[in-house]
Design a protein around this nucleic acid. Structure first.
Lengths: 387, 387
DNA sequence: TTGTCTTCATTCGATCTCAAAGGAAGTGTC
DNA sequence: GACACTTCCTTTGAGATCGAATGAAGACAA
């Protein structure tokens, strides 16, 4: 692998311009700003600048002037709202056997979604062909401006390629981002699914100055980190690994990573299945265990609770260290109330009070679409809304 | 405490302007850039822009044109070096009973230092008076442009005040930053000592796009986090707490925080002292234990090694999660070779290989002055070099 | 109704930045 | 030594942003 020594500033951070325009559209779309002066306040930008950008956006039809708002003791604000253009971005989240596709407007609203079967192990070219077919149908009649894709593996963000061998034969080194851009003739962006899920989840409820962690607890356990509103990828694109943190209670259980006592051996869906089977109970998978817990099976319930406690233990370390505004939980396990309760309970018990003072621990809201929102977001960052 | 809901962009991030000038001075001072074209490459900025800024800096005497460099196949570069102005910034690190003061130039070089006795418990006014006297002497004849101070407690960075009660009577709520600015008639900045130590250490050897953690292991254990070259303070200015992470082997040892099994109960200097005494060995303090280990005392050596292993265990979780480019160790414990070796060994053993692929784990270079470099840095960020 | 105050928005001149083009001063080749 | 090429740096015009001033439109009080 390339050392990833981020030396010179990449084009990714040096805002493609249109940065303010993009933020303006977002604030209006989210209903957080209804006037030019709202925007100036929120953006920390001169009112004159806002006026200029808004004018451009209105002329392009992306925003509309929409009557007047309530006066608050002076001239009434001119209310802004989203215009109705056909400008859209495409987003996809690829899994091993399925891809979830979506089409969103510039305001980040998800208009339609669609799931298609793929076989990611067939390699990037085959996948790309299926993806294109799916996208073409979704994009019918729309004016596509960018594409963003979430991949199930370590991604070198700058080059838009998969990094490590992992379970994706044919992928490493292939510049999927460039291939996407070429097929659709628009800018593209690619990142790891955990990162994009975290990004999507973050911007549902937090601002661009806040920090969060999104943990996906399903068959496996993964997480994505958002620092000041953007993805923290770490030195080698490995950030967010909490699944191999050591848990005392699992000290003698070997993990696929070669060590012993990793969190995933007892707190992941796979870990739950193993533990059930060790107790002589035949289960088909993680969903089965969760079902049993939901139906009052005492062993399953205990295991699920214990899994939550262990995840909570690990998260308490992470929360103390990282001090985020929120921790979001997604994945099949996060739908289990006892699981969530156990996580919360342990985090609040084991953390420094200052770190939990304003902390939110929540089950994710965006459901299966979090990564699509995230993918759309990194795609949107590549374009200027008015261009 | 105030909720610290970072809403609107603070003046801290919206570069005070002169941002490029500051970076230019830094690159030249560090010897990383010797010509305008070097700077353009490093800054990712148009050559024309660099030329303009450099011209300003040369006219102000802050930079000098210093003959020609080696040609690399074309026109020879015009070599740049630091000019000799009297422009300086003041920096201080306050402890309970001492303050370390320093004076640095705009290039971040530390010219002189000085340690004075203070009693921080006497409150901010008394401390400020002593600080001023000390600074006045250091600043003799210099043209002071900014002041930066590291405080031993949780600091609300934006307001420049101490947040929690902690052990500093009279401090909470007092706007120390404003008081400093008023006394010296220059911009000021204040932050927590762990943060500034990390900042100082980071920029000794890493770039502004990289990430690091600096752990101070002395009587207590604390850490500071640097994300993309700047301090990560977290949601409630509590980030960097690793001392209360749970360690299985300490499960039944109560901690001052109210929980059991915290890292600091066995891996801190205080923890070492306690363990020695439990074994009936009279020691005067952490330094004594370290001395004994250095002189071959088997019990002390074992304890120090074990402490290193436990810190390494906690750090492995942090490294997997955060994936930094480097972990720096400071404080009295970090001078112990067995300690450092134990930390390294455990981190490399317990971490995912991808996370340690390019990871450096090093004992800090800046010694007792790390926080001064960090304090100078946040002070420098408040001014425009040419202004 | 008149005047004052507040809030919202735009105009205007100065500054910063960039991209593109071009000049300056070298190296290397035939 | 003539030519092409490389590297370094500056000039120039266009666009973005800012702060300050100004204008626009309402609230409110006397």
């Amino acid at each position: 692998m390339t050392p990833l020594t981020d030396g010179a500033p990449s084009p990714a951070d040096s805002h493609v311009s249109g940065d303010h325009s993009r933020q303006i559209v977002e604030f209006v779309a989210r209903g957080e700003a209804a006037s030019r002066s709202d925007l100036a306040r929120l953006l920390g930008v001169a009112p004159s600048t806002v006026s200029l950008r808004v004018q451009e956006l209105v002329e392009a039809g992306i925003l509309r002037e929409d009557g007047q708002g309530q006066s608050s003791g002076g001239r009434r604000p001119r209310r802004l709202s989203l215009g109705r253009t056909q400008r859209r971005v495409l987003a996809a989240e690829l899994g091993g056997e399925h891809a979830r596709l979506g089409i969103l407007d510039l305001g980040g609203h998800l208009h339609r979604t669609k799931t298609i079967p793929i076989t990611i192990a067939d390699g990037p070219d085959a996948t790309l062909a299926l993806l294109e077919a799916g996208f073409r149908e979704l994009a019918e009649g729309a004016d596509i401006r960018a594409v963003g894709v979430a991949l199930p593996g370590p991604v070198h963000f700058e080059t838009g390629s998969v990094d490590q061998p992992s379970r994706m034969p044919g992928w490493p080194g292939f510049r999927f981002g460039d291939a996407l851009a070429e097929r659709f003739g628009v800018p593209s962006a690619v990142d790891n699914d955990a990162n994009l899920m975290a990004l999507g989840e973050h911007h549902r409820s937090l601002s661009r100055t806040q920090h969060s962690i999104t943990v996906k607890a399903g068959t496996a356990i993964g997480s994505g980190i958002i620092v000041a509103g953007s993805v923290h990828r770490g030195a080698t694109a490995a950030a967010g690994d909490i699944t191999h943190t050591r848990i005392a209670e699992a000290a003698d259980i070997p993990c696929s990573c070669g060590n012993h006592g990793c969190l995933e051996t007892i707190a992941s869906g796979a870990g739950l299945v193993r533990q059930m089977r060790e107790r002589g109970i035949a289960v088909t998978g993680a969903a089965d265990v969760l079902d049993r817990a939901r139906n009052g099976d005492p062993i399953a319930t205990t295991l699920v609770r214990t899994a939550g406690t262990h995840l909570g233990q690990v998260l308490s370390g992470v929360v103390n260290f990282f001090n985020p505004h929120a921790v979001f939980l997604t994945g099949s396990m996060s739908t289990s109330e006892p699981f969530l309760a156990a996580v919360r309970s342990r985090v609040y018990e084991a953390c420094h009070p200052l770190a939990t003072q304003t902390l939110r621990i929540e089950s994710a809201r965006t459901g299966p679409d979090a990564a699509l929102y995230g993918a759309a977001r990194i795609a949107l960052e590549r374009i200027d809304p008015v261009a």
